[in-house]
Design a binder for these strands. Structure first.
Length: 329
RNA sequence: AGGGGUAUCUUCCAAGGGUAGGAUGCCGGUCUCCAAAACCGUUAAUGAGGGUUCGAAUCCUUCUACCCCUG
């Protein structure tokens, strides 16, 4: 094992193309820092954000406006209508294309965003297998679960893939369905597939930075940002989407802020209650993000409190961590 | 000042004198095709002091805090 790692390290690094990731919990300040980082390495930004891909969802996703981009090219923002589906596989494909594009210009891609799963799909080049999603089969299983219960559905998985069944809680219908779908499409077991995928290393010369801050600070920033979003007209943004016909069940309408205000527009709760839910759900989300990043290997944590919350100091640290020559300015 | 009422996890609500329980929050975790999603777990309380009783959140009593009514 030791030898193997030594060997890998000694292997020619030029085969691995450079990739920088800048992520962290929501509202920690990624966007602002990403601009100076991208400029420092003469890179281009690829948004790793499951919601910023949607046009017309600007306020609630804290999207950077074109005039704020300071000339840094941004990819994968505003590429879909809110009615369209989006998922990791699509993201992986599009991000891959954007990266080729950026490499062809001799520049470094900087993945910036808070969707850990999407980042992982790129940094680890996860193979999601060729097969397309089988919507029909998924619906069928959903109906089955609704009728006979989650436990009955889970029983099916025990037959097909006992390992996966052991790993997936029976209440987690969504993942149970995915495992069953995988089995039906490939005849194999997703548990084995995942184990293989987990084992391989990143094909990139990867620098994976996680920006963070003490929990209290983070929560304060979240609460404050939600208020700012509301003041900036988030409710109107959601109303517009709803009135143009966006259904509640859309993936885009599951976004933080959108879901809660949609419920408010439906008259299900008062505005202040919706606002409080947005704050709380966002705090929960930040916590889940941190849990995700803790699991990821080879991440470099940067706690803002250790740099006096000074982006200049943090940038200096970032450049210090990168190989010589990456930071050009 | 007098009269009445209420005190149980962060909060809300349970527990006919017999193992203090649930929801929520907090915290932690899972995750390889909806991931801003979906799901799981842990923790935590009888306001304080006396008394009755084999045994008290529960009955009695004093104190404290809060609420209501009267002046």
């Amino acid at each position: 094992m030791q030898e193997y790692q030594e060997h890998r390290r000694a292997a020619p690094a030029q085969k691995h193309r450079p990739l920088i990731v800048l992520t962290g919990p929501t509202a920690v300040g990624k966007t602002k820092l990403s601009l100076s980082l991208a400029k420092a390495v003469n890179g281009e930004i690829i948004s790793a954000d499951s919601m910023q891909v949607y046009r017309g969802m600007d306020i609630g996703t804290a999207k950077i406006r074109p005039e704020e981009r300071e000339g840094v090219p941004h990819h994968l923002i505003d590429i879909l209508e809110p009615e369209e589906e989006f998922n990791v596989v699509s993201f992986q494909k599009l991000a891959g294309q954007a990266m080729e594009d950026i490499y062809s210009r001799g520049k470094i891609p900087v993945l910036v965003g808070g969707t850990g799963f999407y980042i992982q799909a790129v940094t680890n080049a996860v193979d999601f297998t060729e097969s397309e999603t089988d919507t029909e089969y998924r619906r069928q299983l959903e109906r089955f679960a609704a009728e006979y219960g989650a436990a009955a559905l889970h029983k099916k998985l025990e037959q097909a893939d006992p390992q996966a069944a052991a790993a997936i809680h029976e209440n987690n219908i969504r993942r149970t369905i995915r495992a069953l779908e995988f089995h039906r499409q490939t005849g194999g077991r997703i548990s084995e597939h995942n184990a293989v995928q987990r084992s391989h290393d990143s094909p990139f010369e990867l620098y994976y930075f996680v920006l963070t801050a003490p929990r209290e600070t983070l929560y304060q920033r979240i609460n404050q940002r939600v208020d700012e979003m509301l003041a900036a007209g988030l409710a109107e943004e959601v109303r517009t989407l709803r009135e143009r016909g966006c259904a509640r069940s859309l993936v885009s309408m599951q976004g933080l802020g959108y879901r809660e205000l949609y419920a408010w527009l439906e008259g299900e709760l008062p505005l202040e209650a919706a606002a409080e839910q947005i704050r709380q759900n966002t705090r929960h989300f930040a916590k889940r993000q941190l849990t995700w990043f803790r699991r990821e290997k080879q991440v470099i944590w940067l706690d803002k409190s250790e740099f006096d919350y000074d982006d200049g100091k943090i940038l200096a640290e970032l450049c210090g961590r990168l190989p010589q020559g990456w930071c050009v300015s």
